[in-house]
């Protein structure tokens, strides 16, 4: 199925990002279509995580523009909080709130930000927990859970806001190998349901099976952009070939 005909949710135009004098992103253009799964690959320090964080306005950009459904993130009249509601994010280190139980973590956004009805939000939260197989842990505290469980809860927390896009920032990088699978399976399930996602990852096999489109970044720029089959079997640039070779012993 070609998702390029779907409406564009995120429009990225010539984005530049600097920390002090160091330029991290050197002009990035990209469109993210509804229902599309975009995987961002690249060596450490290439700017892929920074780019992802720019997409929901967690990082300010110094040049170019990012538009979410025609609303510019750089426009002072656009409320970033409303954008955050629509673009969920899952972090490398879960970032669950340690003083709240699982269910409190999940309901904080729906109840306080979206002011939803408690019974209705709770029903949705429990349904989502059921889906990731963690309904029995809803009254646990994050410290009582394994890394894989925490990350699945973090995904549920993002999902329960009913976002239009979810950003995944190296969500399996802190996990023990045997827990990576359970988290990736959840993301794969979301992809099948048509969730729009942008994923930064180092799991090549996963990238290949989940992605509709791969972008390969190096040194703050997009080096290569193609579909996963082509990228993994026949990369066009030397940099991408070199990068992929590192993952093969």
């Amino acid at each position: 199925m070609d998702k390029n005909n779907n409406p564009v949710l995120l429009e990225v135009q010539d984005v530049h990002k600097k920390y002090d004098d160091k330029e991290i992103l050197k002009g990035i253009d990209l469109n993210l279509h509804k229902g599309e799964v975009l995987v961002i690959l690249g060596p450490s320090g290439c700017g892929k995580s920074t780019f992802l964080r720019c997409l929901n306005g967690l990082e300010k950009i110094q040049g170019g523009d990012i538009k979410f459904k025609e609303q510019s993130l750089t426009d002072k009249n656009v409320k970033l909080q409303e954008i955050h509601e629509k673009i969920g994010m899952v972090f490398q280190n879960y970032e669950l709130f340690p003083h709240m139980t699982v269910i409190e973590n999940i309901l904080l956004g729906p109840l306080k930000v979206q002011k939803r009805n408690k019974a209705e939000a709770l029903a949705e939260a429990e349904q989502l927990l059921e889906r990731v197989g963690l309904l029995d842990r809803k009254d646990s505290y994050p410290r009582q859970l394994s890394g894989g469980q925490k990350q699945r809860i973090a995904i549920v927390r993002a999902l329960c806001m009913n976002p239009e896009i979810i950003l995944f920032d190296e969500v399996t990088a802190s996990l023990d190998p045997e827990m990576v699978r359970e988290v990736l399976d959840v993301i794969l399930g979301l992809a099948k349901q048509g969730m729009t996602m942008a994923i930064v990852t180092h799991e090549m096999g996963f990238a290949r099976s989940v992605a509709d489109r791969i972008i390969f970044m190096d040194d703050g720029k997009i080096c290569e952009e193609s579909n996963p089959e082509e990228f993994f079997t026949n990369p066009k640039t030397e940099r991408a070939k070199h990068f992929l070779n590192i993952f093969q012993y």
Partner: peptide, 14 residues
């Protein structure tokens, strides 16, 4: 941790 602030912001908290 700075990330707790980001996690809160990412949920749309003011």
């Amino acid at each position: 941790p700075q990330h707790q602030i980001e996690a809160g912001k990412a949920l749309g908290l003011n």
